[in-house]
């Protein structure tokens, strides 16, 4: 395996829509976690009456706007699962094919420092793929419960959301998923950095530029 710059080739992996979705999704989630936890526990107790600090109202407003962006990003990703490029299609990384199940095992060895070898894939490895599929599915639950809480008088959203029970149980699920997204974000950013350090694909820059780097003839 050669390690000199000229023996690497630049491969276009992520389309513009995927990159836009990623950053809208990531940014909206940071905002949603911050404002969502504030809604759960409004810790800035305002002791001033007759002031103009609509803290709770503003936090909720920001939460809803970010929620709309989050919903659009999630829908865009589901579209790309089926109509995206080869790396973006869901069967390229979901652990449902023999190729991906095998990859899942080798990747877990790689992550556990048991081996340094790993398959060079242009798209996601199957372990990452599994967590991304799960994240998008949970994102769907998160926006359905969110819209159910937001529009209690809309028969459409009530119809969708009430599969999760009353407003209170939906709110509970919404709250638990908040912690899923927080934990996912922490692990995800860590693993992305870890991979970026361990192998010269240029993983992190790929989600900005769309390109990854591979040893010639290795993908």
């Amino acid at each position: 395996m050669a390690g000199h710059g000229k023996d690497y080739e630049k491969v276009y992996v992520w389309s513009v829509l995927l990159r836009v979705y990623h950053w809208v999704f990531a940014l909206s989630i940071f905002i949603l976690i911050a404002t969502g936890l504030y809604i759960n526990w409004p810790w800035t107790n305002t002791w001033m009456e007759g002031s103009h600090q609509w803290t709770m109202a503003i936090m909720r407003y920001i939460h809803y706007v970010a929620g709309m962006l989050f919903t659009m990003a999630t829908i865009a990703r589901i579209y790309l699962w089926f109509f995206g490029n080869k790396n973006e299609k869901v069967w390229d990384f979901a652990p449902i094919t023999p190729r991906n199940i095998k990859n899942m095992i080798t990747t877990s060895f790689y992550y556990a420092y048991l081996t340094d070898n790993h398959e060079h894939r242009t798209g996601h490895n199957a372990m990452a793929g599994m967590s991304y599929v799960m994240t998008i599915l949970l994102a769907v639950i998160q926006f359905i419960t969110g819209f159910y809480l937001l529009y209690p008088e809309s028969s459409f959203f009530v119809g969708l959301g009430s599969v999760f029970g009353t407003q209170q149980t939906a709110r509970f699920i919404h709250h638990i998923l908040n912690w899923y997204f927080a934990i996912f974000a922490a692990v995800h950013i860590y693993i992305a950095s870890w991979n970026d350090i361990r192998s010269p694909e240029g993983l992190i820059s790929s989600i900005f530029s769309g390109y990854k780097f591979f040893p010639k003839g290795h993908h």
């Binding site: 409004p42 800035t44 107790n45 305002t46 002791w47 009456e49 002031s51 600090q53 609509w54 709770m56």
Partner: peptide, 15 residues
């Protein structure tokens, strides 16, 4: 009071 962010923290407190 909800929208303005003014809450009773516990029963019997100032809020």
């Amino acid at each position: 009071h909800f929208d303005e962010g003014r809450y009773a923290e516990q029963f019997g407190d100032v809020g």
